[in-house]
Amino acid sequence: MDTFFISHGSPTLSIDDSLPARHFLKSWQQKIFTEKPKSILVISGHWETNEPSVNVISGLNDVIYDFYGFPKPMYELKYPAPGAPELAMRVKELLVDAGFKNVKEDKARGLDHGAWVPLMLMYPEANIPVCQLSVQTNENGTYHYNMGKALAPLREEGVLIIGSGSATHNLRALRLAADDGSAIPWAQDFDTWLKESLVNGTEPVRGLVTESNGLTV
């Protein structure tokens, strides 16, 4: 089972058919990844906690409308995917065994838009159990790299692991960006560094990479 990072873009991805990413995600099962996973683990940039947390949901996942000021139809969308409590406990087991001692269980939290927006396009049937794992923004790249290593056995257990977010994220800077759609220079620089690091197998980040325009990565 492969592992993917998806830039989920704006929440309007859920309704705006003019966005190319929307069509890419809707073609997921036919063109990108034809194998049906047993369950899905999403690590979203929109769930930040001090300690690793998994949502342990026995029934259907609720959706969290964690965005503001968008068109009303977006707040009426649903993605009733079943929870994945067994996967959640397996994630906790792997992390604890790898040295992440304080792994929390959240039995109430639903799926944030970093999870349900792309999944509603990728797997509209909402018939695959989904679990979320939080990120710790007070920790560095090495910490999360080691978290990924701990979760690697899930790939052999039929679990599709999806990282969902953006390489950079600064809405204030985006609103002030050039009208021609060109990337902000510091964002382009980081994106280039990230691509080269992944392609060339560079060692994980050991600390903060940069802090610019209110964005820390």
Rank of each mutant, 00 (worst) to 15 (best):
V117W: 03
P20Q: 08
Q132E: 06
V96S: 11
G158L: 03
R206Q: 12
L121F: 04
D191C: 12
V91S: 03
G207I: 07
E86G: 02
E105M: 02
E139K: 15
I32G: 00
T49Q: 09
W28K: 02
S7Y: 04
E125I: 02
R22A: 02
F100Y: 14
T192F: 13
A183M: 15
R109S: 05
P118V: 00
A183I: 15
K107A: 11
L194W: 10
E35R: 12
G83V: 02
L160N: 11
V56Y: 11
F100P: 06
F24L: 15
S166E: 12
I40P: 13
K31I: 04
T142P: 01
L94D: 04
D97K: 10
A115S: 10
N138W: 08
S134G: 10
V209F: 10
Q188M: 10
D189A: 15
F33M: 12
T49R: 10
L198W: 14
D106I: 09
E48N: 08
K104C: 12
G148R: 02
P52N: 06
L154T: 08
C131N: 05
P11Q: 00
F24C: 11
D189I: 05
K36H: 09
G201I: 05
E35T: 11
R206T: 10
V42Y: 07
L151N: 06
D97P: 04
T210P: 04
D16R: 12
G207V: 08
K36V: 14
E203A: 15
V217M: 09
A150C: 08
D191Y: 09
V56M: 01
A177Q: 10
M120T: 11
N146K: 13
M122C: 07
L95H: 06
K107H: 13
K195M: 15
E196T: 13
I128M: 05
Q136T: 06
F24A: 11
L25K: 09
S164D: 09
L160K: 07
